[in-house]
């Protein structure tokens, strides 16, 4: 095989893309595992998720370094430039997903110390599946270079919000009905919020893919389910 310094820029871009896909796989696994940790009250699994997060950070830093290096030394243009920039940006979004998964895992550790709120954890599981599915679709679209698939994810952006809204209401009803559920309920609320934000990152990635393939920024209205009363965005996450 060729030594790195004789690699063509095309090869370098492709290996960047492959690393992003690998980071995507790591992020997906972290998300699946942190949701399992919540629903199964699995302490060792939650600890493993927390511990594995450094891998994602390191890989993202590596991708960033390589992308910047590539852009600076090879000065790619057109699609190759967009592909390098996209790799850099997608990696940042994936690394954030990893942080959110770690955060969920940490909260699951606290939750496992209180009484289970079974119906609510089921709602979390459902939302987790939805969000994981979106990330999967968008990463499939990325590795296959399928614009339509990415657009499909972008268009259905509101679905996660709807689930979050319902869960928010459900939780509120619970917490008002039984003060003992307030503390675990609050953790579940933040977990739901984190999942929602993972969904937002999937949407961002869909936009980046669109830019990478077409060179245009996505335009047009998403089908807003505008009748939804927007929830108050007073929830602040401490990260």
């Amino acid at each position: 095989m060729n030594e790195p310094w004789v690699k063509s820029s095309g090869d370098l871009v492709e290996s960047l893309v492959a690393e992003v896909a690998r980071l995507g796989g790591l992020a997906e696994a972290q998300i699946a595992d942190c949701v399992d940790a919540v629903t199964r009250r699995d302490v060792p699994l939650a600890q493993a998720v927390v511990a594995r997060d450094v891998k994602l950070d390191a890989l993202q830093a590596d991708i960033e370094r390589r992308a910047i290096d590539l852009i600076a030394t090879r000065q790619p243009t057109g699609r190759a430039l967009r592909r390098s920039v996209a790799a850099l940006k997608i990696a940042m979004n994936l690394e954030r997903c990893g942080d959110l998964a770690r955060n969920i895992a940490k909260r699951s550790l606290v939750l496992s110390e209180s009484e289970p709120l079974t119906p609510l954890t089921r709602s979390i599981e459902r939302m987790g599946r939805l969000v994981a599915g979106r990330l999967k679709e968008v990463l499939d679209a990325y590795t296959a270079g399928e614009l339509d698939k990415a657009t499909g994810v972008w268009v259905r952006d509101e679905e996660v919000d709807e689930h979050y809204n319902s869960l928010f209401r459900e939780l509120l009803t619970y917490m008002m009905g039984d003060p003992r559920t307030i503390a675990p309920g609050a953790h579940l609320l933040f977990i739901a919020k984190n999942l929602e934000r993972i969904g937002d990152h999937a949407t961002n990635i869909a936009e980046i893919i669109h830019f990478e393939i077409t060179g245009d920024v996505m335009s047009g209205e998403r089908p807003k389910w505008d009748s939804l009363q927007r929830r108050s965005d007073t929830l602040k996450e401490e990260g």
């Binding site: 689930h163 009748s227 939804l228």
Partner: peptide, 23 residues
């Protein structure tokens, strides 16, 4: 999109299941 377009303005809405789309 058209299949799940708003048919009851002002309603709470939720998609209970959505298919994987290829386009």
């Amino acid at each position: 999109e058209a299949a799940i377009a708003v048919s009851r303005p002002g309603a709470a809405r939720l998609s209970l299941l959505s298919p994987d789309l290829v386009g």
